[in-house]
Write a protein that binds this DNA or RNA. Structure first.
Lengths: 245, 245
DNA sequence: GTCTATACCACGATAGAC
DNA sequence: GTCTATCGTGGTATAGAC
């Protein structure tokens, strides 16, 4: 049942590097973290990063996978557990299988805490194609399982519509977890209190559930106040025809 | 009635720099865009950036403000227009005042098109404190106006709850606009068709509206003087206590 | 006040000695 | 496996020309 991510850990050096990189990447972000800083904290030579990982990018991805894969595996396991326990699942139950493992990370400083979620949210909107491809690959199994589960719970949604709603949901989730504001806000309001993060999720939950269950959009273009029949907009084609470097 | 953002445009150099920076920042992102590239495209000396803007950060912020401020002013103007035309506004109307100006930008390559919205979304999750402060400052007037409008349309929400829901909504919105996936997906599905972006917003709209109107969360046993240990929140913490490998 | 040339120092990467 | 030396490129600061 080991994580499916790990290659051989050849020595202590590799481990020291990822551990140092973890803190620094989460604290300062990718670009603001220099390999010289990482190697200094890890007490290894600068060139060791290149030897063990091949470059800064790959160190980043390795560190990300080490946290992300267990999170998604945990989500799937929780969903499995719910599905084994009988009848059809409610949206609330399915959603909780996504949120609770994330909450567990947010509460565990040893797994990066809120900083990891923030880093994840940032990576999610990063324009770098390699990072995007890496992330979607890592997310794919989890997303597929949950899409299926939500599809059963929301049969009125077509396949396309379901895809979009999950997209919106992941967006609200990513930004909520990623934004510094949310965590700072709850920390400022209730400084001494535990469970603020749980409170945040209990607020996010009804918002997302209602969004998922929302009535189907009216996609007809025939409405009097519908903004754009085809003939009306000409600038879009020009935009799509822009040069792709 | 002019934009409240602009200081004196002393010369052509400053303009040439922002124009060049706009394309490059939007295309490659902040870090991947070098000042040497910008100044080369603008056909000005490298040091001119530092002279006119003080540094790369401030050039970025200046360029961002030039696009963002008109967008938010347009949103406020649209909301004003709706409010002047009579009775209380529906959530749908208020939301449309936010979405339609953004749609206008997405469709206008001369204002950055979708690239600008993507850049905006990225900036939104940037960990840099200066950038965050800059953005929240630029957003503040618009957010305040819309918060007030939504507050009237959703009187059942308390002030705090309203704040959170707007936060969630902005998150889903920013993510949807920022993500490359959404635009690529609609472009792939309907390559020749105009109005795809409008279609996306018509799908996003009911999701957001339903989320805003969602029933109030059950914040359960949280009381000011009842400190909550981990085991307290039953449905969440109980499950969260699973193995932490 | 504007603009230019140039010098700095930190960064990521790499080759080659050990 | 590890280390040193070095390369090309990045943002920035400054001195001085116009």
């Amino acid at each position: 049942m080991a994580s499916s991510t790990e290659q051989k850990l050849s020595g202590a050096t590799r481990l020291r590097i990822v551990n140092a990189a973890e803190c620094l990447f989460m604290e300062h972000g990718f670009e603001a973290t220099s390999l010289r800083l990482v190697t200094a904290r890890a007490k290894v030579n600068l060139a060791a990063v290149n030897y063990h990982f091949g470059g800064k990018d790959e160190l980043f991805r390795a560190m990300l996978a080490q946290r992300l894969d267990p999170l998604n595996e945990q989500r799937i396991a929780l969903l499995d557990q719910h599905q084994r326990s009988g009848g059809p699942l409610s949206c609330e139950t399915i959603l909780s299988a996504m949120l609770i493992p994330a909450l567990g990370i947010a509460r565990d400083p040893r797994r990066g805490g809120k900083d990891f979620l923030r880093l994840l949210g940032r990576a999610y909107v990063d324009p770098s194609p390699v990072l995007r491809h890496f992330l979607s690959e890592r997310y794919a199994p989890m997303v597929a399982r949950f899409k299926d589960a939500f599809g059963r719970a929301l049969p009125q949604l077509g396949k396309q519509e379901l895809t979009w709603r999950l997209h919106f949901m992941m967006g609200a989730l990513a930004y909520t977890l990623a934004g510094t504001d949310a965590w700072k806000l709850i920390a400022a309001l209730n400084p001494g209190k535990a469970g603020n993060d749980a409170l945040l999720l209990r607020r996010l939950e009804p918002f997302l559930i209602a969004g998922l269950k929302a009535p189907l959009p009216d996609l007809g273009d025939e409405h009097p106040n519908a903004p754009a029949p085809a003939g009306k907009v000409k600038s879009l084609a020009g935009n799509a025809a822009r040069k792709a470097a």
